[in-house]
Amino acid sequence: MAHTRDFEALVLPHLDAAYNLARWLVRDEHVADDMVQDACLRAYRYFDALRGDAAKPWLLGIVRNNCYAWLEEQRMSARWVAHGEDDELLAAVPVPPDSRGATPETELWHAYRRQAVDAAIRALEPPYREVIVLRELEDLSYAEIAQVAAIPIGTVMSRLSRARAALRTALADLLGTE
């Protein structure tokens, strides 16, 4: 019981972060639910393996592995099935609001920026997308990202740098208006 209480206190507060990472990686809400649920169960089973490490990167690492396994499965089955990428891509090219009606203060403009930023992150390949999500949305340190993605810190930094360069290009219009 103490075991379960510790798990409640240490791991479950990071459920939102876990879901955010999963959702950004698999880009489907139901698959993301499954990824997180399975990751939590695994985390609970191997909770003893968490010795003095921080729980957040540990849980996110398990979530990430699940997501990559799923992405790999999709990639394999995509060879056989002419598969339609998820329908989010249809929304990936947001239309800028009508410049006459929409000033930077309007809701429409705000929604447009969110769509454009989301689309730009989605367009990144998973290894770049994950470092951006972990760094900019989840505030993880380079060392923590290295732990989640199981890569050296130097690789974290170079991937972040390349991801940011791609985002700078994709979001050049918006950066000009900030």
Binding site: Y19, W24, I121
Partner: peptide
Amino acid sequence: ADRAVGRLLREHATRHRA
């Protein structure tokens, strides 16, 4: 420029919640 990108993301990107 990187800082500006970071700010844009932090302010506008969707944070999905469980």
